[in-house]
Design a binder for these strands. Structure first.
Lengths: 346, 346
DNA sequence: CTGAAAGCGCTAACAC
DNA sequence: GTGTTAGCGCTTTCAG
């Protein structure tokens, strides 16, 4: 039961008794075809189930309507929410997605991977890998050789690149200021891994908010996790012993905050009365933690759709005007959602 | 600062003073090239930064080393874990991924989407959309027209298709049998949406285990959610009122189980002493729920890598022997992980 | 309105 | 060993 192969434009032409060019005109909706001829060709197309080859088209038009997407850590919810936004906006904009997932966040030797994408004639590249350590170092040496627009997600702003990210610094401030307003004033912090740019920003936001309130943020008031709930548990235990009179904690993501809530339950530390807790990310599950978790929501799906809109724009611009490309930096604002875990007099 | 365009094989040939054919031999590692010539060509390649066009190759070789992947619900963790497995195995097998995400699980009118993929000359298609309602109906009418192998994830077994799924029925049994062993015997069930094949299987497993223990499973002993924590809350409240002396509950996924735990906390129902709870999926966070959640782990990443191995195999087979393809059904076995939420005498 | 010729970037099948 | 010819499936001139 082997399915038959795809028909070609030639076969359609023969079936309709015309040349391939005329068929081409029909499938491209060109006006200059006699109605009668058009109908005959359309019929042949339908009968044969003909579908033009996007490959052949890409080759000749030097344009594939394909975007290369490089991601990492799809098994975590953050990157997949972003990919979700990318995928739906790409569909809407008429682009296909060629997907590559890095084995690790700090994968080196990016060049061959990028070459694979380019060998497929992608019209643009979306670099959806967060900035970790110097995993973006290749940009300085290799970017000039990339002949198509490229746009980055979640990396530090720099004026020579196009970047879309979330304002993590603001998020850290929002979380901490909220805790201060609630009357907590010995606020600890569990950060993500500090080789992540995003972690450092969130931590800086925490420090800034404390500083503004005239509170010193000592190193003993923070601990470092790796985003996982398991690491959150360890970090929280460390914090409990380092910062005895801590009355609140701003946690770098919701997963780690979850373990904070668990340990609090186990150790009969009442949340929020004895300990205020605020997370980051806005997971769909956070309202169902116990107690429901106050968190800083970042709309990663919007991040993804924004990045697609921007790169499509860049592609159009690059193709028409040949002038220098202006790089744009877009910073999406996260939003604090207050729930029981941080509200003292409820 | 416009980057220069990709060099072609012709330019390399001219630079090295040979014909394109000889360059082709070099980039394909063919043996019959004089060492001296090879070196000269290689140098030209390096200098120009030449990379062969995979597009042109695909066209002539009638083979793209690209897999079409159709998914849905990437913003949920399940589909992305599967995609994670697909991506890493595809990389290992030397295939690229062309990704399409359906806007909804029950999207109709699949044909144009599949055509887009085929117009890109994918060598095979992975249908990673769970079976919901009759969203797989297109298979009967349209599959014959698809000229490449196609393989399905999470749909009911049928011998005329290649399918990889998780044994959800077994999972339901494992969960329920465990609760029975723990001495619970009034076991309710919160299912996923019953138009999902997976939901029905899990529920059937629950029923079968109860039946074997000589216990009737009444309709009032179950409630239906939609996988979300929010729906889990509603379903659990319904169950509490319908099934007054329920002493345990098997929940169709971990997210819904999370709300069960929350409501139990709120209502001072002690888990596990008054109520045993078992979830499904094996989320990384489940050990950090309170109390830690017993759950049925399904390895979705393995599901993804298995499906890629299978389709690559199918592709090879289709290309060589022209004989009929045998369809294979692979059912991965889920594993029960026992934690505090279901252990009575701990 | 329609067709013939050329070619996108590459490789298969032959020559030499 | 290396070059020539042809052509993958399509579109772009440019004739007619």
């Amino acid at each position: 039961m082997k399915a038959n192969k795809r028909p070609t434009i030639k076969q359609v032409a023969k079936a309709a008794g015309v040349s391939t060019q005329t068929v081409s005109r029909v499938i491209n909706d060109r006006p200059d075809v006699a109605p009668e001829t058009r109908a005959r060709i359309q019929k042949a197309i339908d009968v044969l189930g003909y579908q033009p080859s996007a490959l052949a088209r890409s080759l000749i038009q030097q344009r594939s309507y394909t975007l290369g997407v490089v991601t990492a850590g799809l098994k975590f919810i953050g990157p997949s929410r972003t990919l979700n936004g990318i995928a739906s906006q790409a569909e809407a904009s008429g682009y296909m997605l060629l997907l590559k997932e890095l084995p690790r966040f700090d994968t080196e030797n990016i060049e061959p991977l990028l070459q694979t994408l380019l060998s497929r004639h992608v019209d643009g590249v979306i670099w959806a890998v967060p900035e970790v350590g110097d995993n973006h170092r290749w940009v300085d040496t290799f970017l000039a050789k990339v002949p198509v627009p490229i746009i980055f997600i979640a990396m530090e702003n720099r004026s020579d690149l196009s970047i879309v990210n979330c304002d993590n610094y603001l998020g850290g401030r929002l979380a901490t200021e909220h805790l201060l307003q609630q009357g907590y004033n010995r606020i600890g912090h569990i950060s993500g891994p500090l080789d992540w740019w995003e972690s450092r920003e969130r931590k800086a936001g925490w420090q800034a908010a404390l500083a503004e309130a005239g509170i010193d943020s000592l190193e003993s008031h923070c601990a470092e996790g790796n985003w996982s709930s398991a690491s959150g548990e360890i970090a929280f235990r460390q914090l409990l012993s380092q910062y005895r009179d801590m009355d609140a904690v701003f946690v770098g993501n919701d997963q780690m905050a979850l373990s904070v809530l668990q340990i609090a339950s186990r150790n009969r530390i009442a949340v929020p009365s004895q300990l205020g807790v605020v997370g980051f990310d806005g997971l769909a599950e956070a309202p169902y933690y116990w107690p429901p978790l106050t968190t800083v929501i970042q709309d990663q799906s919007l991040l993804g759709s924004t990045v697609v809109r921007e790169i499509v724009h860049l592609i159009e611009k690059t193709r028409s005007a040949d002038g220098g490309i202006e790089h744009k930096m877009i910073s999406l604002k996260p939003v604090l959602t207050v729930r029981e875990s941080s509200v003292r007099n409820s």
